[in-house]
Nucleic acid binder design. Structure first.
Length: 255
DNA sequence: ATGGTCGAACCTCGA
């Protein structure tokens, strides 16, 4: 099973690039974040022509998650445990080929001294709680998306300068570690220990060209799938294209 | 030099 995750930063602005990438890599599943479109305006037809069904959870202008699959999607579920109908669209789960797949868009946090940062930490706690009440580490489970946290020094371009800042603050790292303590493994890091490979670069300042990036997009697999990890990569090609998303897709193969 | 660049929808905000 090939599974990918990509923060597309607007599916309508990115439709050509996403379709091109899907045609090239033919993943069984693509989890998307920041689709930034209401469900009635989602470009289902273009993905359908490539053989994909799509489960969507969007809102006007901001956020929005989706799961595209070449196989039937079942048990589609929106939101965290305890979310209400007005909650931001940041989590969508569906079962594909017997694997529970979740598309995750963790709140950015805005700044470590702002209330949004506390909300980010709480959201991560609630994601762990959602796993606790709905899943088991022995399940076939894949949690993938934009987690907005770099886990370790090899995940940022300048650890000394960035330590304590947004995306590389110990409180966020603890919250993410607590999520992984459920029984999840970072697929890319599992197969590529010590490798510096980023998944996000700021649009500003030529950051991609000078590789001032962060690894904040992850595919986390349950311990039951750990031994079946066959391949993991972060594809930088689309980030170098014309009019790119600021994130690169992460692609994993499970045998 | 306290910058810069996107997307979506509104005439700014969030990232």
């Amino acid at each position: 099973m090939k599974l990918a995750t990509w923060n597309v930063n607007g599916i309508r602005a990115r439709l050509g690039g996403v379709c091109e990438w899907l045609a090239r890599h033919e993943p069984d599943v693509l989890c998307m974040q920041e689709t930034k479109v209401v469900d009635s305006d989602f470009p289902f037809e273009a993905l359908s022509e490539l053989g994909y069904s799509v489960a969507v959870a969007g809102e006007p202008g901001y956020n929005g998650v989706a799961i595209a699959s070449r196989h039937p999607l079942s048990d589609v579920r929106l939101g965290l445990h305890g979310d209400g109908p007005a909650s931001e669209r940041r989590l969508l789960a569906a079962t594909v080929l017997g694997v529970r797949c979740a598309s995750v868009y963790v709140p950015n946090g805005k700044g470590v001294a702002l209330p949004s940062f506390v909300e980010k930490l709480r959201w991560l706690e609630r994601l762990r709680l959602t796993l606790d009440v709905s899943s088991n580490p022995s399940d076939l489970l894949v949690l993938s998306g934009d987690f907005n946290v770099a886990r370790e020094e090899t995940d940022v371009f300048d650890p000394a300068a960035l330590r304590g800042q947004l995306h590389f603050h110990p409180d966020e790292q603890r919250a993410l570690a607590r999520l992984l303590d459920f029984g999840l493994v970072d697929a890319f890091r599992e197969l590529h220990p010590g490798v510096r490979r980023y998944s996000w670069w700021d649009y500003r300042g030529g950051d991609f060209q000078s590789n001032r990036g962060l690894r904040i997009d992850y595919v986390f697999v349950s311990t039951a799938l750990r031994a079946r990890l066959a391949h993991a990569e972060i594809d930088l090609t689309p980030r170098g294209a014309r009019k790119p998303s600021d994130h690169a897709p992460v692609l994993v193969e499970i045998a």
